[in-house]
């Protein structure tokens, strides 16, 4: 009896602690949410109010209209979905090559891809811009997404994942006369659901959160993406209209949080354990 009571108090304490920390972690988002529903005079009142007096939606409407958020969100969504599938397709193919085939220059090629694992966009952005523009792809969706398509991470992680699939499968498939592509599409891919879902999430977020490249390659308002919208809110609002800026920021961040929550299970299991172990 006494022990369980101590146990209960212990658990209660940990819960309280975790609740407090959760609030601190979420504080930037919660306060932004609160301010986004407040009219100007309430935002600048002192002491600042933590909870809106009533739900005031004008900030959302104004932010939405000021920088054409509907268009920006659609662009981001479109580009992110393309990058998500494109990266996955390329990564699955090349990961399969490195996990199931022996061929000349395999090590060299693998190294050549792996070498780019951490090569950030910033290191090559000027020549990249000139090149993409010369292809006539400046200010187009193709120009926006193409440089994102190749991914060492996806190739590497797909390879790691494919290596975990029992080798006996391959042998029996081969004995049954199953060709390499059929093996990939009918056996390997169906077995890789969680890993694919996890990688898809990451790749979606990479494109959705990209800032520098869209900033450089896109000119016209109807091509811009959501992250640029955040910066545009800072420059377009005639003075720092925090309610409006935070409303826009919330709109931009909501899809990322939804995608993350939906795929969290796959993501955490699929990637985190694999990235390190191997």
């Amino acid at each position: 009896m006494r022990k369980s009571r101590k146990d209960f108090l212990n658990k209660l304490f940990i819960h309280l602690l975790l609740i407090v920390i959760s609030f601190i972690v979420l504080m930037p988002i919660l306060l932004a949410l609160s301010v986004s529903f407040q009219p100007r005079d309430q935002i600048f009142s002192y002491p600042p109010s933590l909870i809106p007096e009533r739900l005031y939606f004008d900030n959302y409407i104004n932010a939405w209209n000021l920088v054409n958020l509907d268009r920006l969100l659609l662009n981001s969504l479109f580009a992110s979905i393309i990058v998500m599938f494109g990266k996955l397709a390329l990564g699955v193919l090349s990961g399969y090559a490195f996990s199931h085939f022996e061929f000349k220059y395999k090590k060299t090629l693998f190294f050549a891809i792996l070498f780019t694992l951490m090569l950030p966009m910033q290191v090559r952005v000027v020549p990249l811009f000139v090149f993409v523009s010369n292809l006539g792809l400046a200010n187009t969706y193709s120009g926006l997404v193409l440089p994102f398509l190749a991914s060492a991470t996806t190739t590497f992680l797909m390879r790691q994942h494919f290596l975990t699939i029992p080798k006996s499968l391959m042998e029996s498939a081969q004995l049954d006369g199953c060709g390499p592509f059929r093996f990939l599409f009918q056996i390997l891919i169906p077995l890789s659901g969680p890993a694919l879902a996890g990688l898809a999430t990451v790749n979606f977020l990479v494109m959705w959160n990209a800032y520098l490249w869209p900033l450089i390659i896109l000119n016209s308002d109807e091509m811009k993406v959501a992250q640029q919208g955040v910066k545009m809110l800072f420059t377009s609002a005639s003075e720092r209209d925090w309610g409006l800026i935070m409303a826009g920021t919330i709109i931009v961040v909501i899809p990322t949080i939804i995608v993350f929550l939906l795929a969290q299970k796959f993501f955490v299991k699929g990637i985190a354990t694999q990235g390190i172990k191997e």
Binding site: F101, A112, P127, F131, L146, A150
Partner: peptide, 20 residues
């Protein structure tokens, strides 16, 4: 299988990096 990745990498990664 590797070709598509290599094409993208060559044009959008290796080449611009060398150019830098």
């Amino acid at each position: 299988l590797i070709l598509p990745s290599m094409i993208i990498l060559t044009f959008f990664l290796y080449w611009p990096t060398v150019q830098s």
